[in-house]
Design a protein around this nucleic acid. Structure first.
Lengths: 209, 209
DNA sequence: CTTAATTTGTCCGTATGTATG
DNA sequence: ACATACATACGGACAAATTAA
């Protein structure tokens, strides 16, 4: 043991990598130091560095190109979900919590929009309303995403995107005819600033799914 | 290359491990084949097997004991959220967003408690009320934590704990005299199931801080 | 286009600490 | 106390892909 007699070297490296990313202001798409440089800087072996990097790669936090290098990924986190869901699968309880938490963020976004004049009057709502009216193809997640983006809480948006990936099976589909009315009530209520009506319409929408 | 010339050996191993777990009916807590057995069965090197195992360990899907073996974890509490949060929050710690998101989870917990008879009648509320009444030392985060725990959404709890870590400067302190009344109204409203009153009391509380 | 340097991908061997019987 | 099995960690070697000169 050449370094501190600590447990889980690869966990330490993950931690140090996060600090490195913060300190060096490494942005998504930027290149990380090579494996050999890392194991020299962090005073460990290349094997341990690789174990840490593979872990982060499975999480979708970094991307590696054979012969090219290691890059900080955009936090889309799609790969992660597939892996987790394939392992968890029957954990009904977890799915329920994910669902409830996702809807929590969506409801809060709707409340925020209702309560702020500038957000209620964004042109996007008329645009969305028209798209639904004209029965154009509108995916469910697009509508919800617009709401959360408009609400302006970027952290909430990031959390939501992670959670939404779990519900994508039903969420990424286009809206059906039966959803049309409820959605129009939802949007109109938001524009008028009627919180209770908007939330009620939202709940009605979610019960349909 | 001893195996198929496919890309990302460690990803293949992850996949094969999942099949192994399913085929062999390995349950949480059960032991997985040792690294040497695995690299022999899957016809790869120990390094590649280890990279795959580390990845699953970071995801919380397996647990390894030094000298003991590798075990399938109880996926009920996967640590995914903690890891993702620590990366997402790395520079997204716009205090405003963290604050708003944390309060979102707290409000939702209060709503859930109000709306479910069994949660409203938990003995913890009388206990909390008495502690406040007797002016014993009660930390703010303890009260909020109890609410979220009671609400029963474990995912929300995990997210909240991450967010709360950033608000700890004010949140870990004991409540003051001026908060006493508002808090008692909050608890009583929850017990009675008065959602609006409870939320209003909560908002009043947060404005004091 | 060719060549050389860099980087990741994979495998092997060795030594050490830990758990189990 | 001892032996076996196992994970941990390190370092070296070569192949394959990328990149730059």
């Amino acid at each position: 043991m050449e370094q501190k007699p600590a447990k889980k070297m690869f966990l330490q490296i993950v931690k140090q990598l996060r600090e490195l990313i913060i300190d060096q202001h490494i942005q998504p798409g930027d290149k990380l130091p090579s494996e050999r440089v890392l194991c020299e800087q962090l005073n460990t072996s290349r094997s341990s560095v690789r174990e840490a990097l593979r872990s982060l790669e499975l999480l979708g936090l970094i991307e590696t190109k054979h012969g090219g290098g290691t890059f900080l990924a955009d936090v889309s986190g799609n790969q992660l979900v597939e892996i987790l869901s394939s392992f968890i699968l029957k954990e009904e309880r977890s799915q329920k919590d994910v669902h409830a938490t996702r809807e929590m963020h969506e409801r809060e976004a709707i409340r925020v929009i209702c309560q702020e004049f500038q957000l209620r009057n964004l042109p996007i709502w008329d645009s969305l309303f028209a798209q639904i009216e004209l029965q154009q193809e509108v995916r469910r997640d697009v509508i919800l995403r617009e709401c959360i983006v408009a609400a302006g809480n970027r952290l909430s948006l990031k959390i939501w995107m992670q959670l939404a990936a779990y519900s994508m099976t039903s969420l990424k589909e286009n809206i059906t005819d039966s959803e049309k009315q409820v959605l129009q009530v939802l949007i109109k209520s938001m524009q008028m600033g009627y919180v209770e009506e908007a939330i009620e319409a939202y709940n009605e929408w979610m019960e349909q799914l």
